[in-house]
Write a protein that binds this DNA or RNA. Sequence first.
DNA 1: CATATAAATGACCATATAGTCATATCTGAC
DNA 2: GTCAGATATGACTATATGGTCATTTATATG
Lengths: 228, 228
Amino acid sequence: MVIYMILNAEKKSLTRSDKRADRTRKKLEAAALEVFTEYGLDATTIEDITQRADLGKGTFYRHFKDKEEIATFLVDLSIDELLERLRSTNKHITTLYEALEHLLDAHYKFFLEEYEKFILLFQGRLLVKLERRISEKMEGPYDRYLRELEKILSPFVGEKIDPMKIRRLACAVAGFVFGFFSFAMIGMEMEQVESSIQPLRQNFVRSLSSFLGQLPENNKEEKKSNNF
Amino acid sequence: MVIYMILNAEKKSLTRSDKRADRTRKKLEAAALEVFTEYGLDATTIEDITQRADLGKGTFYRHFKDKEEIATFLVDLSIDELLERLRSTNKHITTLYEALEHLLDAHYKFFLEEYEKFILLFQGRLLVKLERRISEKMEGPYDRYLRELEKILSPFVGEKIDPMKIRRLACAVAGFVFGFFSFAMIGMEMEQVESSIQPLRQNFVRSLSSFLGQLPENNKEEKKSNNF
DNA sequence: CATATAAATGACCATATAGTCATATCTGAC
DNA sequence: GTCAGATATGACTATATGGTCATTTATATG
């Protein structure tokens, strides 16, 4: 215990109060993510959050201005995490085919490992275009997301870059990925979704390659396997 | 006026009261569709609806039990309309390529001509898998939708039909189509979306063909045009 | 240990919304 | 024209939720 405190002593010299506040805030974030996923962003009340976090209602307002603030924060956080997955890879990517494969994998793992964040992003995405009384602040994260996709794809599209074209492609990829998972959630059980991804993988990438007008350079591992 | 009444006389002998009630109900439906699209399903209140319809609040409850009932009704109606578009075509469809082309066109026109219904479906869709306090009744329509897609696609997938595979494909197609439009709405202006569809069309269909493991039988109109 | 500061609390108030119902308006039959 | 039945209305009640704040509990300091 003492050791722990010493080790953390130089860690920005957080007082015990600060750490308590941090813990509380984290509890609120975790609880909010849970209930947002369960009830939906709109249907969730502040008390849903504080009850789930096992905290008093007033506590919420010490940490967030209102529901929108915490929702925006979580959407932003989730996008950050997804972008981090999109950016980082150990493999060196040289072809469009590899790039798409990586994109698919990253999204898929995000969907599996951060299911709640996926659902949250899905919800937030919708809200963006509704002329709501609240929330224009949510547009930013999705723009960042689309721009990251553009950045990853553009090196492989060659030719002079028409921003409009790249944007279309990014929308297509994002739509494809998010759309598939979201409909799969309706039409299948979770295990079925999981067992579908592997066989879908090649077709998925091939179809996106085709979408980009480039067929994968005859990779041996599949001829006409068509094993979706 | 008299003529009108005579013409309509045999039309189920609707009394003027009946017609008044029908008109009122239609007004409510139209108003609800509008405000659902603007504010979102959850954020919309009953008074939003009646005000938009220029009717008293109590009137709403003479026609619908609650918000969920009218929402469910509208979702169902919208799915019906989309399915009708998917089913009906003057062209005789013999290849997968044609089938996909038709599917894309039908969805695209629905998106353009019934924008509000598209948004509504998109919202309702989202609600489905949330463990919500309300609404499991909304799941049905989307299941019908997926099943219709399966029905349209299955003749072209050949082989012994594994229902699971067909279901995957339906999810992929639905996800692709809905997903693209939804992200396009974020990333582009409406006119840009419109002007994107035409050039995207071929790539769209080709990519879906590829997704299904079948390439389009070398149609002449495009070699390597790649004009997305 | 005593005192001061920060964090957490939940009772409390104000407001918004769902849903009701007595009343008013419109319609149909005679 | 009049009466009965159907439809529409909006003031009203009950409830739920957002947001506040005086009080309590935990932490820091000397």
